[in-house]
Deep mutational scan, measured.
Amino acid sequence: ETFPLDVLVNTAAEDLPRGVDPSRKENFLSDEDFKAVFGMTRSAFANLPLWKQQNLKKEKGLF
């Protein structure tokens, strides 16, 4: 299941849709939104070091 970017960005855990893991908001973006937000594919993002993934998520309001 995916959700629009505005539902996930800068949203407190208690305000997220049911079933969304607040530590993994990026997994609930569509592939198109994911690429638009991070400028890379999911596989490229997954290959980044964890610290870099976290920094990007913070920068984009998805942490």
Rank of each mutant, 00 (worst) to 15 (best):
E1F: 13
E1S: 14
E1T: 13
E1W: 07
E1Q: 15
T2W: 12
F3G: 04
F3K: 04
F3A: 04
P4A: 08
P4Y: 04
P4Q: 05
L5I: 10
L5H: 06
L5E: 02
D6Y: 10
D6P: 05
D6G: 09
V7T: 10
V7Q: 11
L8Y: 02
L8N: 05
V9F: 06
V9T: 09
V9C: 10
N10D: 09
N10P: 05
N10L: 08
N10F: 04
T11M: 12
T11G: 13
T11Q: 09
T11C: 12
A12N: 13
A12S: 13
A12L: 12
A12E: 10
A13E: 14
A13H: 12
E14S: 12
E14C: 11
E14Q: 14
D15N: 12
D15V: 08
D15I: 07
D15H: 11
L16R: 03
L16G: 05
L16S: 06
L16Y: 14
L16A: 04
P17Q: 03
P17H: 05
P17L: 05
P17I: 04
P17N: 05
G19F: 09
G19C: 11
G19V: 12
G19T: 09
G19K: 08
G19M: 15
G19R: 07
V20C: 08
V20I: 10
V20S: 05
V20R: 04
V20N: 05
D21L: 05
D21M: 05
D21A: 04
S23R: 12
S23I: 11
S23H: 15
S23M: 15
R24M: 11
R24W: 08
R24L: 09
R24A: 10
K25C: 08
K25N: 03
K25G: 04
K25M: 15
K25D: 05
K25Q: 06
E26Q: 06
E26R: 02
N27C: 14
N27A: 15
N27V: 12
N27D: 15
F28D: 04
F28S: 12
F28Q: 03
F28R: 04
L29N: 01
L29P: 01
L29A: 01
L29W: 03
L29C: 05
L29H: 01
D31E: 11
D31N: 07
D31T: 05
D31L: 04
D31Q: 05
E32L: 10
E32R: 08
D33G: 03
D33M: 06
F34V: 01
K35Y: 15
K35Q: 14
K35A: 14
K35I: 14
K35G: 07
K35T: 12
A36P: 00
A36F: 13
A36Q: 15
A36V: 12
V37E: 02
F38Y: 02
F38V: 01
F38C: 01
F38W: 01
F38S: 00
G39E: 09
G39H: 10
G39F: 03
G39Y: 02
M40I: 07
M40S: 01
M40V: 03
M40T: 01
M40D: 00
M40N: 00
T41G: 08
T41L: 07
R42E: 02
R42P: 06
R42L: 04
R42S: 02
R42C: 03
S43N: 11
S43F: 12
S43A: 14
S43M: 14
S43D: 14
A44S: 10
A44K: 09
A44C: 10
F45G: 00
F45H: 00
A46H: 12
A46F: 11
N47I: 11
L48Q: 02
L48R: 00
P49F: 01
P49M: 01
P49T: 03
P49D: 07
L50F: 12
L50P: 12
L50V: 12
L50I: 12
W51Y: 10
W51A: 09
W51I: 10
W51M: 08
W51E: 13
W51K: 08
W51V: 10
W51P: 07
W51C: 13
W51D: 11
K52C: 13
K52Q: 14
K52W: 10
K52L: 13
K52P: 00
K52V: 14
Q53K: 06
N55M: 14
N55R: 13
L56D: 01
K57Y: 07
K57A: 06
K57S: 02
K58N: 07
K58M: 11
K60E: 02
K60S: 06
K60N: 11
G61A: 02
G61T: 01
L62I: 10
F63D: 15
